[in-house]
Simulated scan of single mutants.
Amino acid sequence: MIDFRSDTVTQPCAKMRDAMANAVVGDDVYGDDPTVNELENWTAKRHGFEAALFCSSGTQANLLALMSHCQRGDEYLCGQQAHNYKFEGGGAAVLGSIQPQPIENEKDGSLSLEKLARAIKPDDPHFARTTLISIENTINGKVLPLDYLSSLKAFAEHHQLKLHLDGARVYNAATALDVDITEIVQHFDSMTICLSKGLGAPIGSLLLGSSELIKQARRWRKVLGGGMRQAGILCAAAKIALTDNIAKLKVDHRNAKYLAEQINAIDGFEVNLNQVATNMVFVKVAEHIDIAVLAEALKVKGILIAPNRYMRLVTHLGIDQSAIDSFITELKTLSRQ
């Protein structure tokens, strides 16, 4: 299948599968898995943090960050479109007794410092305690500028708030900006990295932060049922994702540009080419096109999309230019019917 629904559909390569089959493992709950320990230590050092924790998913890693930064009755500020607010089941509130305070995202995906300032609660028992700011980069494929991140860090320090990065696609941001990852993550007290999206690992995310934060997160991970045993099998693939697949994101970005240009030339489909910054293409579909019927017809042809009037298409390791050409050919034919 040619699958444009998300970059979460990537599958492990042969090198990953060999590494998983031959990984040296132990019981990670006891701290005895050498492959897990090596990945966590290497990742922390590479990104400039004291410690790291391997987690089953980005949702779990984000929740652990929130629960480790915040106490019961605290709140975190985030965007209305933030994944850890909108798409993670309300975990902060349900499981952490933490109140989210969403702020409307600006058109470029950022959060206005003025709006953030107005949302910070007074030191008064009537209010939740504002403790943390959480942002996402990339967000809906948009890349936050480095000067904005620097300003946000200064803002957080001024207001004595911690700053967390949902870095599910942070390597896409670094690739688009053509900078080393440390130029982005140096501004944050904690961050997550998703390994199973564009980086191509089968499972897992990493949480990075101070030694004390990760100590807290490790305890909460166990409480939440996230303590894994021979997890080195997964971490062997994760290490390859971080060493071999980052450079391939440039290809995903080029393919997204190509996809956007090709689809924009088809009647009934409109893409703002200036907003294609990474591996996501957002397509406005005309009202006369039955997008649900179109999606079913494409599926018969071996092509998967997530039907929506404002449709997201995502490029990744499983999408090359020939796959895009096949999709465009079928889309032209089917949209005329």
Rank of each mutant, 00 (worst) to 15 (best):
K239E: 12
S68E: 02
V25I: 14
F188K: 03
V293E: 14
D290P: 05
R254L: 14
R17P: 00
A260K: 09
I246P: 01
T10F: 02
V300A: 13
D290C: 11
E183C: 05
A119H: 07
A19W: 04
E104H: 05
L132G: 10
Y171L: 08
N279K: 11
D33Q: 10
R169K: 08
S150H: 14
G58L: 13
L77E: 06
D267T: 12
A61S: 13
P12W: 01
A277L: 15
G167P: 05
E40N: 13
A52D: 09
N22E: 11
C235L: 05
L161Y: 06
Q216M: 03
R309K: 15
G141K: 09
H47Y: 15
L149R: 03
T243G: 05
Y76R: 09
G79S: 14
G90Q: 07
G109Q: 05
A61Q: 07
F49Y: 15
A201D: 03
A168M: 01
T329Q: 14
Q60F: 06
L195S: 02
T278I: 09
Q81D: 07
Q60G: 00
Q216W: 00
I303W: 11
Y85P: 02
S134K: 09
C235Y: 09
D290Y: 12
M280T: 12
A23D: 09
D74E: 05
I305M: 08
T59D: 11
A14M: 04
R72H: 13
R129Q: 13
D18C: 02
T333F: 08
A231S: 13
G48D: 08
